[in-house]
Design a protein around this nucleic acid. Structure first.
Lengths: 200, 200
DNA sequence: GTCTATAGTAAGATAGAC
DNA sequence: GTCTATCTTACTATAGAC
């Protein structure tokens, strides 16, 4: 299973020449990623996806064999960015990233936020290879949080609180309720972080 | 805002004569609810929805003015059932319900499970009236959990851990990872429950 | 690589027979 | 209320010109 991951990564990496920093495909993945996080994958047509990148739908299939292949690429790209939010950071920076994740701004702007609260149910219905990529990303995210709490259970708890809080808050029309939820969850997450901050 | 809720509830209640316990509309909401939780709302057509109830698509609009009105009815119905899982229960029963929520069986069977981990992102993109119904349901769910922990922040934390854990676990192809996540979250939720179990 | 055009299918919704 | 048939639009995907 781990070997499969490595193969997928290799294929994706070697599809482009090393000196092309950001190709057309990468730009497509960026532009469509924002749209898909905002409006959902199933609800967005290929026409709309390509329009977001300033192109027409005919060009889509020069870059992806199918729409579902795009979802896979989006998940890979988006998860990488979410992971970077928590990696190679001081403890203070990581705690600030958690605070930002649980902010009203993140709730209000799915297009520039983490893909998990926007797309997780659609990932659960996607191909197995898409789910493998998702799993690798989630495990890496958990491991980054684990560095802060040095405990797997606590790390998992924080990960699901972050994504659960943002996902639920986005369905709440009342700002008051949204803020109460975010504040409550932030308080509990902070407590877990403090429990785990004994001597290194 | 509260008045709006009452009006919506009244309309829905008074649409049918009081002696009809379960009408055709209610059966439709049940049957389509399971399908929508499994496959997603946007991804499921009216044809498929009605086929799940043994009918054809033409009959759909005798019961709902639009597809989005159905989503609203499904959310209302499904949230009611999720709330009942935690209401009018002894402490032991409620704790057992939490354990069941975080079970592999719940992760494996979205069609018979809670609607929130299946549909929350689609609710976030739905009409404001659908979101009001969602908010009322989520608040009631939180208040049921609050009875166990007597603290709003802790109740919110548990709610988002439950829905976040199931939602993320459903995207993980490895049973090992799924179980580790569920076990870790269950452990942390249990700890919150024990913190809040002082003298009444 | 990107375009226009189009094939083929499925979508949401309506009309009228029964 | 439910059916079949249909309208209109949108969908995923492909073909061929540039």
């Amino acid at each position: 299973m781990q070997a499969l991951f490595e193969n997928i990564s290799q294929i994706n990496t070697m599809r482009y020449s090393p000196d092309h920093k950001v190709g057309a495909r990468a730009r497509l993945i960026e532009a469509t990623g924002a749209l898909v996080k905002k409006n959902g994958f199933a609800a967005t047509g290929v026409d709309g996806l390509m329009a977001a990148a300033g192109l027409t739908s005919g060009a889509f299939y020069s870059h992806f064999r199918s729409k579902s292949e795009l979802l896979e690429a989006i998940i890979e790209n988006e998860l990488k960015r979410s992971i970077e939010l928590f990696s190679d950071k001081t403890r203070e920076q990581a705690v600030a990233a958690i605070k930002g994740y649980l902010s009203p701004a993140h709730v209000a702007h799915p297009e520039s936020g983490c893909a998990v609260p926007s797309l997780a149910p659609e990932i659960a219905r996607a191909s197995e290879s898409t789910q493998y990529i998702f799993e690798q990303g989630v495990l890496e995210l958990k491991d980054q949080i684990r560095k802060l709490v040095r405990d797997d259970a606590k790390a998992w708890s924080i990960v699901v609180q972050l994504v659960g809080a943002v996902m639920v808050a986005r369905g709440l029309p009342s700002e008051q309720t949204r803020k109460a939820l975010l504040k409550g969850v932030a308080q509990q997450v902070k407590q877990i972080l403090e429990e785990g901050s004994g001597p290194s």
